[in-house]
Amino acid sequence: MRPRRQIATGTIALLPVWAVVVVAYLGTIAWTVLISFTGSRTLPVYDFVGFAQYERLFGTSRWIVSIGNIATFGVLFIGCCLIIGFLLAVALDQKVRAEGALRTIYLYPYSMSFIVTGLVWQWIMNPELGLQRSLRDAGFESFTFDWAVNRDMAIYAVAVAGIWQASGLVMAILLAGLRGIDQDLWKATKVDGIPTWRVYLSIVLPLLKPMIVTAVVLLSVAVVKAYDLVVALTRGGPGIASEVPAKFVMDNLFERSNIGLATAASTVMLVTVLTALVPWLYAEYFRGAKGHG
């Protein structure tokens, strides 16, 4: 056991941090949840209306569409980023020439903000300006690529732009992981005559787990806060076809002066994230505790 004084000093040193966490994070979260039970419009007021805002929220087709979209976007974005990022990392790990240059090129999109990414892809996918127009002008009359303005495809257009932007990041993280793998392991598998794809799938991938978890966490955060990409690329349109929850919150908070509904929507987002996060955290800590036995 450590001396009491040392513990006290540590506690005092951490006090400001705790104050920030409790007031700035937990406090504002609690306040947001509280406001979601009121009928607040432009200004927060405390006229409690029970679950009325939540009832309205789930009766609004735009919110339902937003939830569906974020699920589609999230699965595609995280899944494709992981697969593409992994394949790129493996390809670069084959001791290719000009690796540094290629690595920079693949990582480059990530240095752009979502706003720029969205704008670039909006131009590429606009039938009157982009790829479709160029190819049709070049003689391919029947070529069609109009995802950004097609309401069935708009959310996939958003996903494509997001994947293009973030795959390089996954590549960089996994490449670092691959470099950390002991060369002796490769020699051993060569001796045993195991095919390379099998080594990647059954030995390397499990070893990369911490890197993959890091990548998934980073990508998930991007999914939850997806807003700027959608605003720049489709503005939630055509119609409401590519709306996302964060945009619903922003629009109601500012444009529509409807703080009550906006906080209800953000509370639902928070609860959803927690539901996904808590079992995972529990599993991690539970396993960790067992491991240290």
Partner: peptide, 19 residues
């Protein structure tokens, strides 16, 4: 009418126009 109403109605109008 309120900004809220204008916004909600606009969602319906834009959905109709695009569907």
């Amino acid at each position: 009418s309120s900004a809220d109403l204008v916004g909600s109605v606009r969602d319906v109008i834009t959905e109709y126009w695009n569907s």
